[in-house]
Design a binder for these strands. Structure first.
Lengths: 345, 345
DNA sequence: CCAGGGACTGGAAGCGCTCCCGGTTTCTGG
DNA sequence: CCAGAAACCGGGAGCGCTTCCAGTCCCTGG
């Protein structure tokens, strides 16, 4: 277990101890062909005896591969970080990387600052591939990533363009289901608080909303945008009430905004869900805390991270995986209960 | 801007173009001494012309340094990730690394699984230093980190032992201030919901609680432990009420648990703060949402990340920085308002 | 019994950079 | 004007690994 020198044992030492050439030792360790069973065994023994672990840096240099992938997150307002999103994404990514011997590097990019750092990071050989998340309208990060030529997987589509590889949540479907639920409750004057207009996720959820209301032949122009924060949601709700005091339902594009909207509604004396039904999006823990608790669209955050990494691994290995759209699920709680019509009958 | 070959330009090409030796070019680029102004200029021009960026892998191999530090988080129950903690820590760490050209690697360690991966990661030359967070009782991670011999900074003290380098929040002070606030409100039957007994943060906050009550000559044995979750907090509150129906205040070691405790209190017909005053810990967004809003102890999460990285950088550079204890701050909201006695007087 | 093919083997040439070191040039002060 | 120091320069030996390739050896089928 102790290397002769104070440092880590090297391949040479392993080879010497095993009585073979360095080449043979290398082949044995990477279990390639052209190694006799005897030698392979000898090498394995030597490895164990010395506690040898390949020097990844040297491997990287020789193989012209890095042994790491980066997760790049565009960090506007730490918005993503106010939520538990981030941690779950990372948990998923980590799980997918578990048995690959690839390291995960993290790259937080402020849209305005630190571009040099980002550019450096993206230039090979700093990583073998990259996952990008949470892009805004025309985030400089997108251009930089494209220029880098690195295998790239998008977590959530960018506003413009359709990258070759991505994993996204079915935001449009989720938006539709949310609105459909409100329609099924018999609501007729349905509004929505959408996310920032320069994000694909907001646009998609809004499209889904419009889909559902069109099918139901309802007006779907009662839209206000906000920035995914609680305060933003509260303000947007204020504007909606001003535009249409008689609205009887609102589909909100995030739980945080929904929490804000709830507060505004209560302040204005509306009862939820009696007067106004509310459905959120995300299924954050916060949804249990609001009064009333929040009906919402659950999205598989952890899976998003997991699948992103899986797709990236495939791409890095030269495969052509197909893009993925992960399903959402309606979670019914108090703010927009199940339709009674279906209850017994 | 285009390298002659399809690949990235190398130092040799730069040197050739600048008409100097590779050594000189290297010195110029790392702006070391012993380069004439003229040559330095020529090299700089060549670098710009070729768009040269040093190959970090090769540098790493030659310098016997990696160019990356790791942030290791012990991942029990994704507890840390339910909160916005994680993102803020990372934002802080990233800020501190901003102009160092060091990459940040992330290591999520399940206490039971994935040890091999962790061990590999910790063995040089996979990183130049490591930051460890959120250790439990005797987390295997701690032993592994210690064995690795890598420069290590602890974010939050471990339960056992006192590492040479760490950054922590003044949890004991925070616990004390919380309790003092309740005392100053005239409360006499003060309970506490502490965190898991096998974490240093829980123990420290509890010690602070005991400090304050001892000084005030009040009983400080009304203690229940929970796991930092809302559900856990609710259950613990239940137990406390059973033990002491007449309690008039409770200091809770996290906002999440406090949110749960509030629910339990309301369910049992207690008015907050009239019957029972409540103070939390953390200052998470959730504290604005509860009914009533939550008085709490704010802790500088982002700074914790920032300082951790700063200390690590210093250690890696061979310095001997002193450990840091970051201050907390009482944030007074509705669940435990400011003492009236001091209001006008 | 022998040619030919396959499975092995180890030497050596990298991967792209750092850094030591002996040698040359230039500058300074006496 | 000269010795000695200081500044500068480039050759070359690594860092630890992979991988090409020319060479051995053994085994088969004709």
């Amino acid at each position: 277990m102790t290397s002769p020198t104070g440092r880590q044992p090297t391949l040479d030492e392993v080879a010497k101890l095993a009585g073979v050439s360095r080449s043979a030792a290398s082949r044995a360790i990477n279990n390639a062909a052209h190694v006799s069973a005897a030698n392979r065994l000898a090498v394995e023994r030597a490895v164990r005896e010395l506690g040898y672990v390949p020097n990844v840096t040297a491997q990287a240099l020789a193989r012209q591969k890095v042994g790491a992938v980066v997760l790049a997150v565009s960090d506007h307002n730490e918005e993503l970080f106010g939520d538990p999103f981030f941690g779950r994404i990372i948990a998923g990514v980590t799980a997918a990387l578990e048995d690959t011997d690839l390291d995960l590097k993290l790259l937080l990019c402020h849209p305005e600052r630190g571009h040099d750092r980002v550019r450096r990071m993206l230039r090979p050989p700093r990583a073998d591939g990259i996952m990008v998340m949470a892009l805004r309208g025309d985030d400089p990060l997108q251009r930089m990533v494209e220029k880098s030529g690195l295998p790239t997987v998008y977590g959530g589509l960018p506003l413009h363009g359709r990258p070759e590889w991505f994993v996204d949540v079915d935001n449009r479907g989720g938006g539709r289901v949310a609105a459909e639920h409100l329609v099924s409750l018999g609501r007729r004057r349905i509004a929505t608080i959408a996310g920032p207009a320069d994000t694909h996720v907001a646009v998609a959820r809004l499209d889904g909303f419009a889909d559902a209301l069109s099918v139901a032949q309802l007006d779907h122009t009662l839209v206000e945008h906000a920035d995914f924060t609680r305060e933003g949601g509260a303000a947007a709700m204020e504007r909606l009430l001003q535009r249409e005091p008689g609205l009887d339902a609102v589909s909100v594009a995030s739980d945080n905004m929904a929490a804000g909207a709830l507060q505004t509604l209560l302040q204005h004396g509306r009862r939820v869900p009696e007067d106004v039904a509310v459905v959120g999006f995300d299924d954050l823990p916060i949804g249990h805390l609001t009064q009333p608790s929040l009906t919402t669209i659950q999205q598989p955050i952890r899976s998003l991270g997991y699948e992103m990494a899986r797709v990236l691994l495939a791409v890095v290995d030269g495969e052509k995986p197909s893009p993925l759209l992960l399903p959402t699920r309606l979670v019914v709680r108090e703010s927009a209960p199940a339709p009674v019509s279906l209850a017994v009958s």
